[in-house]
Design a binder for these strands. Sequence first.
DNA 1: ACCTGAACACCGTTCAAGT
DNA 2: ACCTGAACACCGTTCAAGT
Lengths: 235, 235
Amino acid sequence: MVTETDTTTQPRIPLTKDRVFSAAIKIADQDGLDALTMRHLAEELGVEAMSLYYHVANKEAVLDGIIDAIMGEIEEAAGGFGPKDDNLDWKSALRQRILTARSVMLRHKWAPSVFETRTTISPVAMRYFDALLGIVREGGFSYDLAHHGMHALGSRSLGFTQELFEPENPDKTDAEEATAMMEQMADQLPYMVGMMMEISHDDPDSTIGWCDDDTEFNFALDLILDGLERLRIAS
Amino acid sequence: MVTETDTTTQPRIPLTKDRVFSAAIKIADQDGLDALTMRHLAEELGVEAMSLYYHVANKEAVLDGIIDAIMGEIEEAAGGFGPKDDNLDWKSALRQRILTARSVMLRHKWAPSVFETRTTISPVAMRYFDALLGIVREGGFSYDLAHHGMHALGSRSLGFTQELFEPENPDKTDAEEATAMMEQMADQLPYMVGMMMEISHDDPDSTIGWCDDDTEFNFALDLILDGLERLRIAS
DNA sequence: ACCTGAACACCGTTCAAGT
DNA sequence: ACCTGAACACCGTTCAAGT
């Protein structure tokens, strides 16, 4: 029989790798990546920072772990990485998989930054890429073209693009600052000014530059997929 | 008349922003980005860490400064961002500009990581993008398509791709580790194994995955440029 | 005007020690 | 087996003080 332990107050759930990773993701989701320190992580788990080192080798292992967990979320959202979806053409199948990955990424805005710093590819990520590779391969690609195609997709195969010069909080002063600078340099930036004027004409409250929205993602994705399809046919 | 100062030994070159940025780039080039700390930077300049704060607001300002300097190198390598190069078609002109930027990036392997963390775009970078925009605009693009095209190029417009899961030193154990893991999961990775077998057949000492070499960069670049050209014609 | 010493509030991590 | 206290070697940054 399970008897009540005679510890003082709470039964205290024991620490596990998974609990550590979950807490880490929670912190990053709520307070951003900078808030994810070993000390905060321990605090979130009601434990001393040093206790973490009994379960994980170091902070890198934590980051590896949360990326693996994210890939797990993608697998779950996709209903598994089973090889044959249905009778979709390769392009639709690939886009579907990628947009599923993207839906998970949008829940974890910090994830791209962590992906970039990983040096070893996680097992779940390997299976993810194998599934993508399978889709194009079964779609009639040579391994060589499939390989190039994966590189061409880059981070987009995981559902995100790393935007350059993107302010963290676009509603803040960064955007105004950039706009002010552009106005000051207006004579040196003829085309940017022209573009701004034309686009603001059509859409008064658009701001150029920090717009990695779904429109841009889908535009680039389709551009690459269409290009690959043409190369496949030509080969 | 300029008299000899009565300071003890060396005349001591005074600190300037530019000297700070140059030293910072030198450190990053030689010892990597992690070695770029305010304390090391000061040491490199023969000064105490706190002295730096008289010339720059904080470390972010240093990072902004070295990115500006890198953009300056690109401008120099391109012989200026003058609007009209010659009688090249837009595609050749754009590729040329981008490959020039890439040649500078290859001298500063750490630069992509710093670019990703910038939240404000530097003035020189603005002029760079204006020049790119000018090339496609004069090549017959609408501003709308030009804008989408820039987003589609992403970091490639600056001459680099952020590779996922790229080991820092590919000659080290990371590659072996990844290969070992793949062999262990071979039954779950049918397509990766198939690809490896075929490619290693053609090229015995190739290793899959960490190959963001010029071949992949150019493949993806041309794929996107060709796609944009087709959209331009269709529009 | 330009640089510095001392100090603060943080990091990740080790190691011997507790239960 | 699991957790902790104390400590180490670092960070970026401030502020009053020196010349």
